[in-house]
Amino acid sequence: MARSKPVLHRDDPKAEPLVGNIKVTREDWLNVAMDVLISDGVEQVKVLALADRMAVSRSSFYWYFKSRQDLLDALLQQWEETNTAGMVAMAERAAPTITAAICNVFRCTANSGLFNTALDFAVRDWARRSGPVRSLLDRSDQRRMEALSRMFARYDYPEFEAETRAKVLYYMQLGYDVAQLNEPNEERVGTVPEYLRIFTGRDPQPGEVEEFQAYAMEQWKQAR
């Protein structure tokens, strides 16, 4: 049976995929492992299967990783450096108003480079079967929540209210993505003004919503 072409993420989408005995990079191993983690779950992230997908010898794996566990640890590190760091950075980003600050956080919903929703789901599923991953997920959730709480506090919300509004914002967003509503992008960004009023109790200022809407539509356009 002929092998399928490797699934590699290259900077140049027109570049030929690596095949045969051509050496692959550490990033290639991570990218293909990430694809499998998201699509099939952590149980299917196996060295031989990944090598077969890239049509290379599994011996090259050991140039970059000591073991399968080393690869899994690298995937978790990449998840933290993308999703948790991305959300924290957006929550801490300077903004003139709380509504503008939340629009910054909303950028995580539009840009997978800031927050990869599919990867977050995969790690949460993984955490159901792994105590250490559950602990890591709990710490990451806590970091995100604390950053969002501090964001509200910067705009003079009392501590308890800041924490509560942060929870509403965070858990609503997670649940929204889990629901996979498949609504048109135009419809989703059209609801932003009302969500901002619900999350903050304040009206967005002129230009804030339009700036985010333009950003989101451009990100979704590029992702097609």
Rank of each mutant, 00 (worst) to 15 (best):
V88Y: 05
D125G: 06
Y157M: 01
S60I: 14
F212S: 04
Q142D: 14
F115L: 11
M34A: 12
A89V: 02
Y170W: 12
L75M: 08
D28P: 07
G207H: 10
R144I: 13
G20S: 12
Q173L: 13
Q77E: 14
D40M: 02
D177Q: 07
P132Y: 07
P17D: 13
G201P: 00
E80G: 06
E80C: 05
D156H: 13
L181Q: 09
G113L: 11
Q219N: 08
R93N: 11
Q77V: 07
E146L: 15
P184S: 10
R202G: 00
Y176V: 00
L30A: 04
N104V: 03
R93C: 11
M87L: 15
T109L: 12
T99H: 03
Y195A: 07
E163M: 06
R129W: 04
S112K: 10
V47F: 02
V192H: 01
T84E: 10
G131R: 14
N116V: 00
N104M: 06
A216H: 05
W220M: 07
R224F: 10
S149K: 01
K23F: 13
E159N: 01
Q205H: 11
A166L: 13
A223F: 10
N182C: 02
P158H: 03
P96G: 11
E16P: 01
R150L: 08
K221R: 15
L137T: 08
P13T: 04
P132A: 15
V133R: 02
D125P: 00
W79E: 11
Y155A: 06
Y62S: 05
Q44R: 13
T25S: 14
V192M: 06
A89T: 04
K5Y: 07
P96D: 14
E187L: 13
M217C: 02
R197T: 08
L37C: 08
Y64V: 08
V42P: 02
L37V: 06
A51G: 15
T164Y: 09
F121Y: 10
S57Q: 06
R139N: 14
L137N: 05
D12C: 04
N21W: 09
N185C: 09
A153K: 02
A118R: 08
V168R: 04
L114P: 01
M90Q: 13
A15E: 12
D12G: 01
F61L: 11
R134L: 13
E163C: 04
M90G: 01
N185Y: 13
R58L: 02
R128A: 09
D177W: 02
Q219L: 08
E187M: 09
V189Y: 07
F160T: 00
C103W: 08
W220T: 02
L137A: 09
E194Y: 04
R93T: 13
T109R: 07
E146Y: 08
R129C: 00
Y171A: 01
V7P: 01
P96S: 11
A2T: 06
P206S: 06
L30S: 05
Q180Y: 03
